[in-house]
Design a protein around this nucleic acid. Structure first.
Lengths: 210, 210
DNA sequence: TCTAAAATACCTGTAAACTAGTAGAAAACT
DNA sequence: AGTTTTCTACTAGTTTACAGGTATTTTAGA
């Protein structure tokens, strides 16, 4: 029986990282780095016409965020395994990635050896999370910070609030009553489980909602 | 005359980036990647006993921040040229790096070719900033956002404000009068040139003051 | 030691934010 | 077509934030 290589593609907007992955994963005879992309649309164009086993996915791409990409890949190509790769160890992002089908998540401070291990393990159907990530996921079980779903309008209001614009001026901008803005603001504070605008801004920035 | 290679060292806490730089810069016959480090202390240990032309310096290292490293290198080894390399295009960080002696600054989305060009140019005594960075530096001339100096107490209050704690509770925590907290808060808002707490929080996060 | 800077505290007034409840109209979903 | 969600808007009362001063006591630098 002929050994099939694991077909891997890399999506990262840093050419330097791509080159690093190419040279180090290329050394592994069981892994075939088919192609590398710097944005999401190129990735999807490729997925349309090729079979792929594992996608190594940077969470921060210019044209689409990692969570959305995960969701779309999982929906359209459920056989494709996703490994998140990012500088950020933000629990909410990691959890969202996992919820949307990522089978693994690594920080960029991993060695290429560990990455290769992860690819193999995930390709076998298991999951893989680096030590630090495991700890984060474990911790976040206790404080079950469900990411609340915000409506379109609420997101709009949130970003304006986060810019420090006051209620009456937000109302002016959105051409609605200040009272309505107040309501949205109130609902946001309630949904996000905070108690004032300052915390709301912090939250929004942390969860990259703005 | 024998051609001397440019002696370069790379400091980055991401092994993947290091491998990428190694493989791509290694291909350039005029550049000698002497060594790579993942933290600042290893870097300084090496500088003590070796002559180096150019340091490629990631701004985010585990043990020391980029600005501090720049300052120290410039002071102790003024002949060593520094090229900042980072994911962040935060104007205040870039400006601080330049102020502290960085001769170039690139975002991690550069190609290795551009990086090589930068190394050569900087080694010749010129400076090099990638297009995006040039734009940022140019923009920041107009809005001369001098980073205001905050006092110790102000920083304390700022981080508490940023956590969304209200004035009376901050007062309780710091065991001072709420009126004093109000004064600090007001001074902060004035110093940072913003108009409310929400903007203050945003600012503080952006400038990594908390 | 003198002095400038920082931290502390207070007053007054206005504006905005937060709390709590209600409720009709418009979209979206089934 | 019917139900649910979202967006909209209102009343009314409380709390906190913001702006403009002023002033005393520490702390730290020259």
């Amino acid at each position: 029986m002929k050994l099939e290589k694991i077909k891997v593609i890399v999506v990262d907007d840093h050419p330097l990282v791509i080159e690093g992955l190419r040279s180090s994963l290329g050394a592994d005879s069981t892994i075939d780095v088919m192609n590398c992309f710097e944005n999401a649309s190129d990735l999807f164009a490729f997925l349309k016409r090729s079979t792929v086993n594992v996608v190594i996915l940077d969470v921060n791409l210019p044209d689409m965020n990692g969570v959305e990409i995960c969701e779309r890949i999982t929906k359209k190509y459920p056989h494709v395994k996703i490994v998140g790769l990012s500088t950020y160890n933000d629990p909410s992002i990691i959890k969202q990635m996992v919820k949307n089908g990522a089978k693994g998540y690594l920080l960029k401070n991993v060695t290429s050896k560990e990455l290769a291990t992860a690819i193999h393990q995930i390709h076998r159907g298991q999951s893989y999370f680096s030590g630090e990530i495991q700890k984060i996921l474990a911790d976040s079980i206790f404080d079950n910070n469900e990411i609340p779903k915000l409506t379109r309008r609420e997101k709009e209001v949130l970003s304006l609030v986060a810019e420090g614009i006051t209620t009456p001026k937000i109302a002016e901008k959105l051409i609605i009553s200040p009272l309505t803005v107040e309501t949205h603001r109130r609902n946001l504070i309630q949904k996000m489980g905070v108690s004032n605008a300052a915390q709301l801004v912090k939250m929004a920035i942390e969860q990259r909602l703005i």
